[in-house]
Design a binder for these strands. Sequence first.
DNA 1: GTCTATATTGTGATAGAC
DNA 2: GTCTATCACAATATAGAC
Lengths: 194, 194
Amino acid sequence: MKHFSEISATAEKVVDAAEGLVQERGYTGFSYDDVAQLVGIKKPSIHHHFPTKAELVAVVTQRYTHRFREQLLGIEGRLPKAPERLAAYAALFERTFAHNRRLCLCGMLGAEADSLPETLASEVRRFFEANIDWLASTFLAGQQAGLIRPSPDARALAEAYLCTLEGAMVVGRGLRSPRSPADVAEAFLSTVRV
Amino acid sequence: MKHFSEISATAEKVVDAAEGLVQERGYTGFSYDDVAQLVGIKKPSIHHHFPTKAELVAVVTQRYTHRFREQLLGIEGRLPKAPERLAAYAALFERTFAHNRRLCLCGMLGAEADSLPETLASEVRRFFEANIDWLASTFLAGQQAGLIRPSPDARALAEAYLCTLEGAMVVGRGLRSPRSPADVAEAFLSTVRV
DNA sequence: GTCTATATTGTGATAGAC
DNA sequence: GTCTATCACAATATAGAC
């Protein structure tokens, strides 16, 4: 499997296009021809860079997860306190959704998980696990600093917070509501801050 | 548009099959042939009952929303207190997910909303609005009885709770975690009960 | 109501010229 | 790396016999 850091400039444009398409329409909802038109080359050229759809989207997911973790590190470097970090985390989802109502890539793929190739499904699992780990340690730090309520335990809070944000994008799409992921996250956070 | 209460026995089997398929694979992820095989008739017979896919899934969604509201009424008739009602609400999602990891029909369609026919997208919107209305009045009653914390306001709690449950199904699928929607809901509820 | 047959379009993927 | 041409198949949908 190709690594996203070792691909050509054109292949990167392909990954860019595929990423947006998955977020907007899902794995089953886009085609190689859609990608080709966005990039401005023909369908067989896409196959030259990524022989199969599963491989293409696996690379998309790996890069997405990698960038997400970079942003989490950025939050850690910028903000010292857990409540601020958790609000900044929500802002990542807010920014994604503000861009043409795009879903979290792995939120979309998670919904489709049972019809996805197994290698791709495990990439999605890795994304969620990384997020829950980061959130759990953040909630735990907040609890130890007395800034977050001590119960439920940090892992349960982490899972609930992630679910709330992923759900906010899905519901926000279905509802065409003015209420955004950041608003929903703030309602959640207001119940757990001490 | 046909109404789900005025369809033949065969058409009902078609709706049953389509409902499960949407929950498992999404609107774009199933075909008329899939439905035909589940029902045990041929593809053109499905078209005889429901000329287009959009119409079929619209009927599926109308029936799903109707049944959901019946279950909400059942909860009201069975349980007097808001916290119990909210836990019973989560149990609806729990039961759906326990059945072969099926998503909420409108959670799945919500994720796909931007590639759905407009008439179908508004059926999905109706489902979410009905749920938020019911949850908001339930949270409000709990607040007035002093059983639910007074802030955030009932509507914000309702939206956050719905998002948490819809998200729990998506994340639960992507994660293959033992943690279920009811567990995540309980974590949420524990932070809002007084 | 159900079927066979078919139209039409789109899909992921490959062969092979340039 | 990109293209034209094409394969094999699956999709939604329709015509018309029974």
